[in-house]
Simulated scan of single mutants.
Amino acid sequence: MIKLFVGLGNPGPEYEATRHNAGFWWVDALARDLKLVLQPERGYHGFVARGQVGGQTVWLLEPQTFMNLSGKSVAALARFYKIEPQEILVIHDELDVVPGEAKLKLGGSHAGHNGLRDIHAQLGTGDYWRLRLGIGHPGVKSEVIHWVLKKPLKEQREAIENAIARTLHAVPALVAGEMDKATMLIHTSKPPRPKPPRREPGEGGAPAAG
Rank of each mutant, 00 (worst) to 15 (best):
residue 88 I to G: 00
residue 82 K to P: 07
residue 138 P to Q: 15
residue 70 S to T: 02
residue 1 M to H: 12
residue 68 N to M: 07
residue 31 A to M: 04
residue 157 R to I: 11
residue 164 I to L: 06
residue 9 G to W: 01
residue 56 Q to N: 15
residue 93 D to F: 04
residue 94 E to R: 09
residue 170 A to E: 01
residue 28 D to N: 04
residue 63 P to W: 01
residue 100 G to V: 05
residue 184 M to E: 09
residue 35 K to M: 03
residue 118 D to P: 14
residue 182 A to L: 09
residue 142 S to V: 15
residue 89 L to A: 03
residue 9 G to Q: 02
residue 86 Q to K: 09
residue 137 H to W: 15
residue 204 G to W: 11
residue 153 L to G: 15
residue 88 I to L: 03
residue 47 F to G: 01
residue 44 Y to F: 04
residue 5 F to D: 00
residue 118 D to K: 11
residue 189 S to L: 03
residue 66 F to G: 02
residue 102 A to Q: 08
residue 144 V to N: 05
residue 77 L to F: 01
residue 81 Y to Q: 07
residue 129 W to G: 03
residue 185 L to A: 06
residue 120 H to G: 05
residue 111 A to W: 07
residue 116 L to T: 07
residue 44 Y to P: 00
residue 125 T to D: 08
residue 108 G to N: 13
residue 95 L to M: 06
residue 156 Q to H: 12
residue 30 L to A: 01
residue 159 A to K: 09
residue 28 D to P: 01
residue 188 T to W: 03
residue 68 N to R: 03
residue 58 V to C: 05
residue 1 M to T: 13
residue 96 D to T: 09
residue 111 A to G: 05
residue 42 R to T: 04
residue 141 K to F: 12
residue 123 L to A: 11
residue 9 G to V: 12
residue 134 G to R: 09
residue 119 I to V: 14
residue 144 V to R: 08
residue 38 L to D: 04
